[in-house]
Design a binder for these strands. Structure first.
Lengths: 195, 195
DNA sequence: CGTCTATTTGAATGTACTCAAAAGCGGTGG
DNA sequence: CCACCGCTTTTGAGTACATTCAAATAGACG
């Protein structure tokens, strides 16, 4: 089992992963590779898998009325990414997921997830906690969007995800923060001055 | 078992609730009543329960730097409300939950949740789906906050939650939408004109 | 090197905010 | 029943922050 995944799961459930669970898990996962610009999922089509990134960067976004990309999720290695709504409901995905760098992922397909979920209650628990954590992060992100200035949001982002700043295009970070790329550029300029 | 709760659970898991599960569930829940202005949870203290509202209205909010209430969740009868982060982690709550009307709730205490979760995998599944749905709604709310004007956000809110508009104070709806009460007042005025 | 995309910069505009005050509404007690 | 109080909503005027439109510069990639 990939060390990043093991680490991710153990941090999630706050206990070491039993050897048998580890084995079962490994059997359910499929390794896959994507080129930069490839899509792991596409808006409008069902998203049948959850991806764990072992190498590279990816982004889940939707296109707004003007055709601009709006990032909902940004992820580097060590993170999960998917359109969970589509994954669980089977409906069309609201987001496209695109590789921003050459990407290596572990794929958990819906059918394997369902199988495992029925056989091992452990899976429902793991995914309940994963989604729970995602939900809490999202709440905090929304709270900041409503209560903080664009500049403070960017400062908090840099602090929380320093690696992302280096590797994710600025226009995607801008949309993730709910601002326009031009505005983010000006904010960065102003910050460079003050420092 | 309260019909609103039964309905809520069956809609969540997309199947009728087995009679035995219903019985078990009913034993885990405690009825409780609050006056308008009472707190179900307080920012800074752990939140030990999840509440299902059977009558009345409630709001989960945090206080920003200026001491203004920022609504994270609004709920009428038929909805669940809690600070899930605090409930699951045991840490201090980020939100206060306040009764906006005389309130009747069914209380699911942490200890009962844990007991049930270990005895019946059904519970992990139910709560995984509940949180999953909450997560998806939150994503959509964030997407709208970033991509839509204040007016469109309010229009969408009115369409999605017509009952809330009648019963929740405007300044809380405003903060839920990420705008100031004065601005919401002006938006409503402009809408009345155009109609 | 040339093309395509991302980022920066400038100037003008606009949406929502701030500060301030008035009006409306609901509850309480004289 | 009316007067008063506190809180919510409305309105007005001025402001600020981020946006738009447009163009120039910088970077990535074949």
């Amino acid at each position: 089992m990939h060390p990043l995944l093991k680490q991710n799961i153990e941090r999630t459930i706050a206990q070491t992963l039993p050897a048998d669970s580890e084995k079962i898990f490994a059997e359910l996962l499929l390794e896959q590779v994507f080129q930069k610009g490839d899509f792991l999922a596409e808006e409008g089509k069902p998203c049948h898998a959850i991806y764990f990134i072992t190498q590279g960067a990816a982004c889940a976004y939707f296109l707004d009325a003007k055709g601009e990309k709006n990032a909902m999720q940004l992820a580097l290695e060590g993170h999960w990414i998917s359109d969970l709504s589509s994954f669980f409901s089977g409906q069309a995905a609201m987001y496209s997921i695109e590789a921003l760098e050459p990407l290596k992922v572990l794929v958990l397909k819906k059918e394997n997830f369902t199988k495992a979920s029925q056989a091992f209650p452990f899976f429902d628990r793991l995914f309940r906690i994963l989604i729970q954590n995602a939900y809490v992060s999202l709440q905090q992100r929304l709270a900041k969007t409503n209560a903080e200035s664009a500049e403070n949001r960017y400062l908090a982002f840099v602090k929380q995800y320093p690696d992302f700043v280096q590797r994710i295009p600025q226009y995607l970070i801008a949309s993730y923060l709910g601002i326009k790329p031009q505005s983010l550029s000006r904010i960065r300029k102003a910050m460079a001055h003050t420092k």
